[in-house]
Design a protein around this nucleic acid. Structure first.
Lengths: 151, 151
DNA sequence: CATATAGAGTTCTAAATTAGAACTCATTAT
DNA sequence: ATAATGAGTTCTAATTTAGAACTCTATATG
């Protein structure tokens, strides 16, 4: 399977990997959530090469997670902002950070914390089912192929 | 930043990308959740090159998501099983598939469904806070750098 | 016995991606 | 007149990935 093919995969997990399946894209999104909007800002904060950054931003825009908007003329300059679809990615990043904190331990405190907007409390995320309220994990949920399974 | 450096990053999101930051790893994990355990099984189902598959399995083992266990001698053969840490990744994959289904639409039905173990109902995942029960999304949660922010 | 199959890799070459540094272009600041 | 800012683009070298072939052990088949 090539990069290009993934965005048309029938499996949503595969399509998701067509967007964030590389070392940088999620880190760019993280910076977006932290408020960064500009090319040089991303570049300096992440240390990504300018070439790749340009590429990734283009892809995130093409996939609808970021929107490129002019913020001045003379000279014309653009900034990148999270779209609704990009903002909707927040729970994924949050559960990923939660998993990594618990299962890929590190010496250091995480440099970013996720806190409830009202109050200082760091969040303790649990995935639940909207209808039943039941906690969703490998014990309560079953993955089931619908017909045949393909990438 | 190179591949190698990511596993020691202070930021959990970066460490997570050191594990799943490529096109294949998450698809391998998906197959694990679907019950696959063997090298040739992964290879045939995914169409990944054997070379890369061997590499990725080695990394997943090194990172503690999979464990390699002999399932026969004569000749000695091993299979790969999800560890607790690997199983704990389920909510991340689930919220990712939910996001992708809603925001990277496709012609096809998803070939995999996530259903509650008791009953047929497909799950409707929401991330909530364990203490307050509040829904966690970009409106209710704030990302906050703890000190200085670095990859 | 000779050949074939299964399972889990390894090895090899070519193609694609990424790293890293330098260059462009427009406009404003010194 | 020169430097700085911001957003890219271009170039070469290093790394990764694709794809196919090969290895090795053991069992099955004719």
């Amino acid at each position: 399977m090539k990069w290009h093919d993934m965005k048309d995969a029938a499996c949503p997990v595969a399509r998701a990997m067509g967007v964030i399946g590389d070392r940088w894209t999620l880190l760019i999104l993280r910076e977006c959530f932290l408020g960064e909007r500009r090319f040089d800002g991303f570049q300096k904060r992440l240390g990504i090469t300018r070439h790749l950054l340009a590429e990734r931003l283009k892809r995130l825009e093409a996939m609808g997670l970021l929107a490129r908007k002019p913020y001045q003329d003379r000279p014309l300059r653009h900034e990148y902002r999270l779209t609704d679809s990009g903002k909707a990615f927040a729970p994924v990043m949050l559960s990923m950070q939660d998993w990594a904190r618990k299962h890929l331990p590190s010496e250091d405190m995480p440099p970013i914390s996720f806190v409830l907007r009202d109050g200082d409390a760091e969040v303790d995320p649990v995935l639940t089912d909207r209808q039943t309220g039941q906690e969703l994990n490998h014990r309560t949920v079953l993955l089931r192929p619908r017909k045949a399974s393909q990438p």
